[in-house]
Nucleic acid binder design. Structure first.
Lengths: 344, 344
DNA sequence: GTCAGGTGCTTAAACGATAAAGCTATCAGT
DNA sequence: ACTGATAGCTTTATCGTTTAAGCACCTGAC
């Protein structure tokens, strides 16, 4: 037998002396609708198994107009937060018979557009996107073309599509309140300098917690970092912490990347955690476990974010007219030593 | 204009009153070979641009028999080592017009087979695989069917295909010799319990370094950890380090996962690094920077591993008969405090 | 004036599958 | 015996490309 050549419907049809249509019907279990004889159906299925028939998915895709493929766009697949999400999306999608094509946008609008174009031309059935700033138009363009889009991690207020996100505001509020309850009254925050709402929500949660606890927010407490200049901006941000004018005694990082980069500097700064400065970070990092004062952090349920995203994607592929669903996943504050009561 | 519907060759052809064949020739820049008139070619290209024509890649794939897709199989995409590789492969592949479909094998033979089958049925043009144990037959099966396969990170001795790997033996040797030069004479190692040769190479490098420096290897020094029971095995492995019988004063981790898991335990064990025990790990981890005595480690050139893998894959797609190429990438020992001279 | 050869296009088959529509026995009902 | 329905298959068109082959027409050489 020729193991090299792929066997097609036609091969099976010729082998049995029937038409390809009949073979197609039988193998798609359309016995009833297409009125395939019981014994013939059996013969065909047996032959297909014997010849080790594997349908040509490309041909199926062309005919059916669907590819059973999900396009995943994140900021950076090498970031553990996103690669963990990717891992679960991959497993989850496969359960439904879908595969995943991915791309990293690097938080760049142009790169995002390029990726979307590539994936559209690959005819993905749905997108799961952690959108970068200023990509609303790209997303809207997809929706106008009736391409299913599920937003994950980040969202846009006036885009009517499914999304999954963490309860950023509430858990940020909770984290900052935790700092206050542990005796901190001058609390700073570091965030990315972006209009993306998940980030704004975290900032607003921080501000609201201050306000509700009678602490007047000072704008110098909030350090914004630009994504492309992470290292530079973090450096200057942390340096300002030791400014005697500022005297913050608690600090909240909006993401793990910001925290990790900052901790490197704090490690050599003479700042004592948590005595001088209590710390909390959003997200996880293995680095948090090894910092001399293990970090209190906010654990997002990556598992739930990812499985929900896939569920929404599949649901929308199945019914493009269904009402958009907004899923909010609870995150959890994991308290450890970096946020313990200070000496003061 | 109808923005929803995709425009096809036929639409352009109708629009200009010519045949689809002519349009195809023109858009594929086959003016010369297919004898397309200069002005007509211009007209066609202009119309294509105006109508915003995007070729249907599915149809092209069906006709051409190629999908411009690379299948990537690694142990676990959520492992930073592999996600970093994935990131570079993604970028690199796109430069050549390829996209990447990925899957995680979890070091499981069965899972690997499943993934390979899925990707084969998707007609990927080439595989880049970090193979799991006992998957030689699967790889050989692919090669028999003339599917290009590039092995990365791991390899099999009697499989004739392209591969890229780190100089595991040499750099492991170098690492262990470094420990010896820093006064360590009882050196242990932790490795995965696998027959995979990259792991054996690291172990052999370790043993050879001992031997060449007149240290007699003791089998109790070598701790093997099974991948599915990582935590359990690491725990018992590290506990045995404090065994007064053993008294190792230097230790070498074969991967970052082993090191990170071990460091968690060492952190609470009373062992003092590097005074009691000098440490070196293969691979990187952000955790290494934050361990109280920053770890000396072996930095693999992920960049080079990944770009070479893509280069080999593309080269083989272009010429299936070319001689397999074996690329060895130099890794580098990054010396930090965890391997400094002991007190003794 | 004829013919070889080139130019500029069209026709048609093919990739591999799907599915609507069509054809031919057979069978039940009257 | 005639009609209509039904079971069991085949024919054919189609998805959107690619590409070999074919067909006019024109030019230049002899």
């Amino acid at each position: 037998m020729d193991k090299d050549k792929k066997v097609s419907l036609k091969d099976i049809a010729n082998h049995l002396g029937v038409s390809t249509a009949l073979v197609s019907y039988a193998l798609n279990n359309k016995d009833k609708e297409a009125r395939v004889g019981a014994e013939m159906a059996e013969k065909i299925r047996k032959a297909a198994a014997e010849l080790n028939y594997q349908p040509n998915i490309i041909a199926q895709s062309l005919k059916r107009g669907t590819t059973n493929t999900i396009g995943l766009i994140v900021a950076d697949i090498s970031n553990p937060f996103f690669s963990s999400i990717a891992r679960i999306i991959e497993d989850e999608a496969r359960k439904y018979g879908y595969i995943v094509i991915f791309g990293s946008s690097d938080e760049s609008e142009a790169q995002s557009k390029l990726l979307i174009d590539v994936l559209v031309s690959r005819r993905v059935d749905a997108f799961i996107i952690a959108p970068s700033e200023h990509t609303e138009k790209q997303i809207k363009g997809l929706l106008k073309r009736k391409v299913p889009v599920v937003l994950i991690d980040r969202y846009f207020p006036n885009i009517e599509t499914d999304f999954v996100q963490t309860n950023n505001f509430q858990v940020a509020y909770e984290a900052v309140e935790h700092l206050i309850k542990n005796g901190r009254d001058r609390i700073g925050m570091m965030a990315y300098d972006t209009g993306l709402l998940h980030m704004q929500d975290r900032i607003n949660g921080y501000k609201e917690a201050l306000k509700d606890n009678g602490i007047k927010f000072k704008s110098a407490w909030l350090r914004k970092v630009s994504y492309p200049h992470l290292v530079r901006d973090v450096q200057s941000g942390i340096k300002s912490l030791v400014d005697p004018e500022l005297k913050v005694n608690g600090f909240f990082f909006a993401t793990n990347t910001l925290a990790v980069e900052s901790l490197k500097i704090i490690n050599h700064s003479g700042i004592r955690v948590p005595d001088d400065l209590a710390l909390i970070s959003f997200d996880e990092s293995i680095a948090f476990d090894f910092f001399y004062s293990p970090l209190t952090y906010i654990r997002q349920s990556i598992e739930e974010l990812a499985t929900e995203a896939v569920r929404l994607a599949i649901a929308r592929i199945g019914d493009k007219e269904r009402k958009p669903e907004f899923v909010v996943v609870d995150a959890k504050l994991i308290v450890r030593s970096s946020s313990r009561k200070g000496k003061k």
